[in-house]
Amino acid sequence: MPLDTSTYSLALLRVDGRRWNELRRLHAQIRTQAAADGSSYLEMGHTKVMCVVTGPSEPGPRRGGGIGGGAGGQSKDAEVVVNIVIAGFSSVDRKRRGRGDKRTQEMQSTVANALAASLHTHLFPHSQINVSLHVLSQDGSLLAALINAATLACVDAGIPMTDYVAACTAGSTSTYAANDESADPLLDLNHQEEQELPSLTVATLGDSDRVVVLVCESRVQISRLEGMLAVGVDGCKQVRELLDRVVREKGQRMILEGTVEKGTGLNDLD
């Protein structure tokens, strides 16, 4: 169903009133749940995701439909097992997805492999890190939200990692057929835009330009790729800042509350 985006060229404002390079409101919390080793809650606009991390722990009997990733299953590294549950009420029309859904399985494997690249899995041989993700509400950029939430939960769980894996989406105002040169790249697409415009999900490691995940599922001119990727990588840096702030604020609060002792290495938190 083509949506009327012709207004974009007039005011350069998108359907939800953002400019091309604006992120949606990103709100995140860590340590949302007492029982888990690590947990987080993340909102990117109306996309809401919860993440719970257990482990590193002894690998239990392999249950459920989780897909493991990381280091080709070598037992000298910890295995990252990701389980994604997309709640039936998460989309506008209720749609139930079974565990066998290939799209979900692909996302599980993507998140697992992305985390395995930044976590120091070699420190925990013969063990397993369980990441369970719950999608409560979907409004575009789902994979990006899942990666960000998983990163935060791993930070909370205290698993050593190289840097944040931050993700966001980027799109382009042109359709694949149109060869117009005036097409603008867009940052952080919502569901409506994702349906209609070519888009890609990028995840980068820390402050660098190095891409961990790049997923594009729509037809787009190859010449658009550079612009979209540049905007996406830039967006990831913004997301990384936001995630970092969440972690620091929580750390500061925990020191104030006396939950943790202030260590010497934490001076920069002030």
């Binding site: 697992a112 995940v213 790049l214």
Partner: peptide, 29 residues
């Protein structure tokens, strides 16, 4: 995935060691 008209149909780099964005652009070319 591309066609000969230079339209990208799909890209998937599903995790793994991070790669420079510029290198990916070269790969696509």
């Amino acid at each position: 995935s591309l066609n000969r008209h230079g339209e990208i149909c799909q890209i998937s780099k599903l995790g793994g060691t991070p790669v420079e964005a510029v290198a990916l652009l070269q790969c696509s070319a």
